[in-house]
Design a protein around this nucleic acid. Sequence first.
RNA 1: UCCAUGGUAGCUCAAUGGUGGAGCAUCCGGCUGUUAACCGGAGGGUUGGAGGUUCGAGUCCUCUCCAUGGAGCCA
Length: 463
Amino acid sequence: METTLVKQIYRDAESFGGKEVKVSGWVRTVRDSKVFGFIELNDGSFFKNIQIVFDESLENFKEITKLSVSSSIVVEGILELTPGAKQPFEIKARKIVIEGTSTPEYPLQKKRHTLEYLRTIAHLRPRSNTFSAVFRVRSLAAYAIHKFFQERGFVYVHTPIITGSDAEGAGAMFRVTTLDLRDTPRTPEGDIDFSQDFFEKETNLTVSGQLEAETFALAFRNVYTFGPTFRAEKSNTARHAAEFWMIEPEVAFADLEDNMRLAEDMVKYIITYVMENAPEEMEFFNKFIDTGLFDRLNNIVNSDFERITYTEAVDILKKSGEKFEYPVEWGMDLQTEHERYITEKVFKKPVFVINYPKDIKAFYMRLNDDGKTVAAMDLLVPGVGEIIGGSQREERLDVLEKRMEELGLKKEDYWWYLELRKYGGTKHSGYGLGFERMIMYLTGMSNIRDVIPFPRTTGNAEF
RNA sequence: UCCAUGGUAGCUCAAUGGUGGAGCAUCCGGCUGUUAACCGGAGGGUUGGAGGUUCGAGUCCUCUCCAUGGAGCCA
């Protein structure tokens, strides 16, 4: 007999009503009395469970009443529609085969656990309601992102995970080496001799695929990357991880305005797709994780994102009368408290802040005509903070080279990047979306460690 | 890395410097429609670790580890 997935039954219960079905899954709970009992079964295909009714006519009745939580079973029986009951339908079991037993020490109770505790059992937490929902949404959101870009003709490019360019400027990097760290080869000057390393030069894990993505944008026009990214910063916050995933679109012949339009469309597309394709999971988040979730997401989808310049943001902050821990001054980077004030208090929706002072932004961002600011944009969202950072790239070779000189960057290290400006350069733009931050925003989960299956943060690489 | 808070039973949490408790989970029993089932009973502890103060420390002090919240770095 064919196995039926619980999701199929939920999606089309009518056609299964009164018919024989076979399901398999893990026991979430057993409630039994003298001659009959109920099992909540989750088969992994769907967020919700299916109720199994069993009675003493089964030869292994006693055994079944003693099943520990998370035992795996195969059930055959009749699907009965139960309108008016708390569950829409149930399976009256004819046969239950115990596939794998569990034990009383199984760490996931039927009761609520803290997210902190669940983190310590990352190998079991996907079996809990919350994480079942989180990782289903994560999968759908990843698909939605590919769908969004593919529908618009973007080419998906795999930029390298191991990089030889150290100066992407996005933070501390993890070194990749095969050298024996207890006995490293030395140059005559006493430095470590990387010419004897695997790649015969210093290499690190990527902090961004942007520079490589630009090369593809100047060939394929519209491209995006979607892959793992590594930052060796010893961050200790709810929104930083050492290993995370990033989406980096890069578009030729596009200016900052086009860039923002793309980002806004993308964010709205992802939200709409996930709301439509994971209604049960989203309802769960709205009910148990963040009761304002639906209001917030609907508000995003139906409203235009705000756009203000950095200079305007500084003005707003200065005139706010708010007491900030860090003073606001033109030229200083906006602090988290400032960003939160703008997106959460002033506009109460996503806000693009553009045209930052050049001195607080990366070398590749396009210098504006005022000579003081660059065509950068950060998308700030309530609750999560910065979710997207991007810019129009400097396409003028002389301006770019001058900027690199100012920052003490060696042109030789970027020879191929600079050649893009030499051979048919064009204005182009792109941004980076922190995938996990998007998931946090979508689900209301407030810690990045709870939207990554096996999170890596400083001091923690268990599992 | 800095600031704050916390660490007690498998889990979630109580306990004025004076005999460490409860709910849930577990085990045993009861119950013919349960929905985080219900009712009765039982077992379960080196109070994160090391040191100190005290007649006496879960409680006070020092150090340390870990977690959480906030900050910095950013996505």
